[in-house]
Design a protein around this nucleic acid. Structure first.
Lengths: 159, 159
DNA sequence: CTGATTGCAAAGAATTTGCACTGCT
DNA sequence: AGCAGTGCAAATTCTTTGCAATCAG
């Protein structure tokens, strides 16, 4: 019972800001909020069309731009694991690191007090007013590196 | 007396890895290393052509790909401050944050022990083998936010 | 000598834009 | 009713690719 509340909040926030609520936008926002993975523009289009068949690709980009500007979503690249697309996620209460595994392609999220401290440091030491933070890490995830070690016990070529 | 030494190191590293050293690659690597700002593929092409006029755009991309794979350069987006280009920098000894000012467009670099600790935490807590780290922060830099405050003392709209 | 590297030109992927029409508030 | 929002199709921007010619080691 959490997602519906959050969704309403987003939609309300938009109307409060004087943004018109069209069926297209509703479909896009609902889709973004219910997504279980990070969506790129194209997947978002396809998924949102299941709710609102009358939805154009250009509208997707325009809406993403809008939501980005209103700081309701964050844009990620996930280190270009697949092509040059961007991925989007609804802004959560807490910034987190994205760990992208080059091997299996999985994305882990990780938040830590150290991250928050680092942000605080940036603000105080540089007088920098943070609006967006994007921390992406690429490498080999725990599961994959274990799998690799097993494979490599006989070859002795550990990487 | 530092840059030349570093340059030799990069070129040597490449030959050691059995990579052929063409004039084109030399020009690209020299240009990257002597650059005072973050270069995108197109600026890199233009600058490197001053050294090696016989240099094609495709070669630029292929070389960047090579250097990325060999972990000699890092790729940045700088939060798409201008278009969707990528920017490149020679890997330095220490990872650092990129602070991109939405107002004046300047890029500040910032490194901190906290950042290193955070990376260590990612390794130990997640068993994640880090290969690339990209931390990009967007907002308003110190200089610009001071300038804004002055402008806003009479309007009282402090953001 | 020979396979890696390049140039060229064309293709591709992702995103943006101009304009007439539509529909939210 | 009026203007923000949309669809459509064309344009842009950035990057990749196939293939023949070239060159580094």
């Amino acid at each position: 019972m959490n997602a519906p509340r959050q969704r309403r909040a987003l939609l309300e926030e938009l109307t409060m800001q004087g943004v018109r609520l069209t069926p297209q936008r509703r479909a896009l926002i609902d889709t973004l909020q219910e997504a279980e993975r990070h969506l790129d523009a194209n997947s978002l289009l396809e998924l949102a069309r299941q709710r609102e068949p009358n939805l154009n690709r250009a509208t997707v980009y325009r809406t993403l731009e809008l939501l980005k500007k209103m700081r309701m979503i964050d844009e990620l690249d996930l280190l270009h694991l697949e092509g040059e697309k961007h991925f989007y996620e609804v802004r959560s209460s807490r910034d987190h690191v994205h760990l992208a595994c080059f091997h299996c392609g999985r994305i882990e999220e990780f938040s830590s007090p150290l991250f928050d401290e680092l942000k605080a440091e940036i603000t105080t030491q540089n007088g920098f007013g943070i609006r967006v933070v994007r921390l992406e890490v690429g490498g080999v995830c725990g599961a994959c590196s274990m799998a690799r070690e097993e494979t490599n016990t006989d070859t002795a070529a550990g990487h």
